[in-house]
Design a protein around this nucleic acid. Structure first.
Lengths: 207, 207
DNA sequence: GTGATAATACCGACCGAATGGTACGGTCCC
DNA sequence: GGGACCGTACCATTCGGTCGGTATTATCAC
């Protein structure tokens, strides 16, 4: 395997490959149970490269959380659920889109930052902070549509920000139940309840 | 410290103390990041005692999940939310009770089996299985009241079992968001949304 | 009751493997 | 040449787990 250079980064620089490996391996095994050696092997990189790009394992965790935030941010920004002209329809389309993403092995559709936050919130506060920014940052991208829909339906009860956060809470809970043995069905079920909640909320106020 | 005997178990046998230490330490630091030595120190017990009672660290994880299931089971069985005569009131009182339990340091009011399931679902399937039994077993204790309330209100749409599971999903999600920086408020907020969902569901069908 | 026996509960030094991290040298591009 | 980038060998520590031994208790014949 030829060394990738700046001109020919092949399948990405070592840093990029390490972040991608971290995204997948940590989702499956957790942060603490994933060793640096294992990460290097998965990325096809040596330890020297690892500690050249990251000062410590904790630094990689923080970078992985940020990487997750930006890559999922791009995914959702380009997703088709923004198409509907009605803001409530866009919110419901987002939930449908999230439901569509559920499938395959559990580690493939669950959330890196949720997993890491739960695990390291006491031992590595800086990682937890980065995870929180990714989660609440994503929630914030939903706020505008929710606020528009609420205004259109004359609803003010739960704030748009609060409802946006709640969607993420339900999603994270769905991941936990799926990992606890509920599988794909547990995830879909939780999203069905969440969609029903939103529909009931907005049906109450009507147009 | 005198050796505790069967006649004078002092503050519990070594096994009991280890399970209690595991309950608290693993909730704070996670399963993988908690060492056997650390557990022994927290329990005031030596390594010999640990491996006398548990064949491996994984076996302790399974036992801790079962211990969590039975001790929380006793807590909820004796809780006051069973008092109301109306089944829907009992369900809502359960949610109020769960909200009341939120307070203090995050590790004190979050869920051991949720944390462990998320972390070890791939690496230690047997632990994840035990965690799943605790979670879904607790959900099952809510089913009867939910089913009664649904019958009374003429509702059949989401099954009682599904709604019971969803309460646990929202709770687990609340824990994740709390650990990601949302704190106590994030937990309370999620439970408020969950209660509103249940109220909307049952208001729709009325009596 | 008493002594012998077996089983249980526990102690703590020790082990090999794996861990996160470092030192240092080489290679490539500007 | 100088710095970014990466490879290899190595280090100190910590990890889960083992093992020989001791103290305490339960059992039971007598």
């Amino acid at each position: 395997m030829p060394r990738p250079t700046k001109q020919t980064p092949e399948r990405g620089s070592a840093r990029q490959r390490l972040l991608e490996a971290a995204r997948d391996v940590i989702r499956a095994k957790g942060f603490a149970a994933t060793s640096v050696d294992e990460l290097c092997a998965a990325a096809g990189v040596t330890k020297g490269a690892f500690f050249h790009h990251f000062a410590s394992k904790e630094a990689l965790g923080i970078a992985a959380a940020e990487f997750w935030g930006s890559s999922t941010g791009a995914l959702f920004a380009g997703a088709p659920y923004h198409a509907p002209t009605d803001p409530l329809d866009r919110v419901l389309a987002y939930l449908d889109f999230r439901r569509l993403l559920i499938g395959g092995e559990t580690w493939q559709w669950t959330c890196l930052v949720g997993t890491m936050a739960e695990e390291v919130h006491q031992t590595h506060p800086d990682i937890a902070r980065a995870c929180g920014e990714a989660i609440f940052g994503h929630a914030a991208t939903l706020e505008a549509d929710i606020a528009l829909a609420m205004a259109q339906h004359g609803i003010s009860e739960p704030s748009a920000a609060s409802l946006a956060r709640h969607t993420q809470a339900v999603l994270q809970g769905a991941f936990v139940l799926a990992k606890a043995g509920g599988g794909v069905e547990a995830g879909q079920e939780a999203l069905d309840h969440l969609k029903r909640y939103v529909e009931l909320l907005f049906r109450k106020g009507e147009t």
